[in-house]
Amino acid sequence: MNKSNTGNASPKIICISSGKGGVGKTSIAINLAAALAKNSRKVLLIDGDLGLANVDVALGINVRHTIRETVEQGRDPLSLLIEIMPGFHVLPASSGVPEMANLSHEEQVFLANTLEDTIDQFDYVLVDSAAGIGESVLWFNDWSQENIIILSPDPTSMTDAYALIKILHSRYGKKRFNLVINSVKSKKEGREVFEGIKAVLKRFLKIEPDFLGSLPVDNHVVKAIRNQKPFLITYPDSRASIAITEIADRI
C-alpha cells in the first residue's frame, strides 16, 4: 500500500472485508492492529460489524457503551474507546441490534462526520467490516481510503471477494485493492490464488490488485480467539504472527 503512516498526517483509514463470512477478517484486523501498535503506531480498530459485533469478544473486553450510543444519542466516540495495549484502541459495536446494521442515510452522514472528528490522533484506523455486501459494508469501504480484501483458497471465498470488488469498483469507483490470502497451505499457494483472481480482475474490470501477503493455516489463530488475545501477543513466534508482521510492514 505504499508509504507507512507516521505522526502528524491525517490517519490512514483501511477497511478490511471479504464478502464471504468466517474467512478471518476479525483475526486479521486485531492482529494487524497489534502489529502496527508494536511498531509504535497509534491504531484505532473500529468494529464495523455494527449489528453483530465480534472484536470485543475476540479480545475479551467487557463492553458497556458502544458506537450505537454515538449514533442514537450523539455520544462522543472518544469516550467509548477501550485501550487494548499501548497504541491500540478499539471502538466497540453492539451485538444483536439489527437496526445498527442498516443505518439510515442521515445516520451514516452523522457517523462519518463524528468519526472524522475523532480519528485525528491516530496513525491508522482499521475497520473490521461485517460479512456480506450489505449497506454498512459498502459504506465503510467507501469511507475508507484503502481497502483490504481477505479471501481464502476456496471457490466460494474467491467468488465473493471478486463480487465485492466488482461492486466497490463499479458503484464507488474504487480502483485500489489490497488482497490478503488467508488459510493457505504454503506461501506458494497464497501467491497462486492471488495470481488467479488478479487475472480475472485484470481481464474483466481492468483492475490490478496489490498483494499484501498470505497467512498460513495455523492453530494458534484458533487458540488465540479462544484465549481472547491477539495471537501476535500470545504466540509471537507462530507462523501466523510472522506472516501478519510482514503484512503490517506493507501497509
Binding site: 474467491m158 466488482k166 490464488v193 488467479g196 474483466f204
Partner: peptide, 18 residues
C-alpha cells in the same frame, strides 16, 4: 455488478488447475 458466467468460469478454471 452481477458476476457474469464468464467471470466465474475464469475464477473456477484457475481453481481446477490448482
Amino acid at each position: 455488478c452481477q458476476v457474469t458466467t464468464e467471470e466465474r468460469a475464469q475464477l473456477f478454471s484457475f481453481l481446477k488447475r490448482e
